[in-house]
């Protein structure tokens, strides 16, 4: 039960199982149950996702760059690699390796100028990844046991042209010093994709918000969002990630790639 969780907008890329229980069963689920189901949902053994990242400053587009995400799942543990493939951050690569219960996930960042991977400390989980509005936690550092969960009443959201009947779960960080001690998350009941999230600061006010939309089934029973939006409400900084391509179960994606020593390896995916 006490597995790690990628309970975030981006974590939808990494799912595998789909929860399709009856409404009665769904009504009985606690916040923790839902978080656990999200963690285990929409998983695939191997996946490659091409995305375009748009960064906005005060509503104005300041930069666009491309990003490739690769995931690998084995023994119910996820490994993920993110690489910028254009812009000044070109070839900056992040590796996230899920650990067992009670241990923080391990994350490394490889920067070409440094020439070797560097570890990221777990207390930096809620820092933004490079200059995006996505935190390291969003990219795979979040652990299910880091939070307590409370389910609120279900709600319906319409995002873009899609409507979602959602579980609503408030998760509170057990660490009182967390940068974002509370999240409120709307999870689509059909796909188990988190489609809206609000991040709250220590003062209780909302600091960040995000939605994921254009949810599609990429393989029977596996859903993912093709559009992810995050906004820092204090700075007005916005990040929009649009998926441009997905390849499921690529035969040439090896687990060996998900090693710190291999983070600098060239990829054919651009």
């Amino acid at each position: 039960m006490k597995k790690t969780i990628l309970f975030s907008l981006l974590a939808v890329f990494m799912g595998s199982l789909v929860f399709t229980g009856s409404k009665t069963f769904a009504d009985e689920l606690s916040g923790y149950d839902i978080a656990l189901k999200v963690k285990n949902a929409n998983k695939s053994t191997k996946r490659i996702v091409w995305s375009k990242l748009t960064v906005k400053e005060k509503g104005k587009v300041v930069e666009q760059r491309t990003l490739v995400l690769k995931t690998f799942r084995k023994d119910n543990k996820d490994k993920a690699l993110f690489r910028f493939t254009s812009g000044l951050k070109r070839d900056v690569t992040m590796l996230s390796i899920e650990q067992e219960e009670g241990k923080d996930n391990i994350q490394y960042v490889y920067t070409p100028g440094v020439g070797r991977p560097r570890q990221i400390d777990s207390s930096e989980k809620q820092n933004n990844f490079e200059d995006t509005d996505f935190t390291n936690e969003d990219l795979g550092a979040r652990k299910i046991e880091d939070y307590t969960y409370k389910r609120l009443g279900d709600e319906t959201l319409k995002i873009g042209k899609q409507s979602f009947t959602c579980f609503v779960v408030v998760s509170e960080n057990k660490n009182p010093n967390a940068k974002y001690p509370k999240y409120k998350t709307w999870i689509d009941q059909q796909s188990l994709v988190p489609v809206k999230i609000e991040s709250y600061g220590k003062d209780g006010t909302m600091k960040k918000t995000g939605v994921s939309a254009a949810v599609k089934e990429v393989k029977p029973g596996i859903f993912m969002s093709y559009y992810v939006y995050a906004k820092d409400l204090e700075t007005g900084h916005e990040s929009i990630m649009t998926v441009t391509n997905v390849v499921m179960d690529p035969s040439d994606l090896s687990e060996n790639l998900f090693e710190p020593a291999n983070m600098s390896k060239p990829w054919k995916e651009k």
């Binding site: 409404k23 009504d27 009443g153 279900d154 709600e155 319906t156 959201l157 319409k158 995002i159 873009g160 042209k161 899609q162 409507s163 979602f164 009947t165 959602c166 689509d188 059909q190 809206k196 939605v211 939309a213 254009a214 599609k216 093709y226 559009y227 939006y229 929009i240 649009t242 998926v243």
Partner: peptide, 24 residues
């Protein structure tokens, strides 16, 4: 509690991603 009130969130999704028929 079961999703009666629908909140509408406007997002600028590219057309090529926004082709679903509007239901869930």
């Amino acid at each position: 509690n079961i999703g009666g009130n629908e909140e509408v969130i406007e997002v600028d999704i590219p057309d090529e991603l926004n082709h679903t028929d509007g239901n869930s």
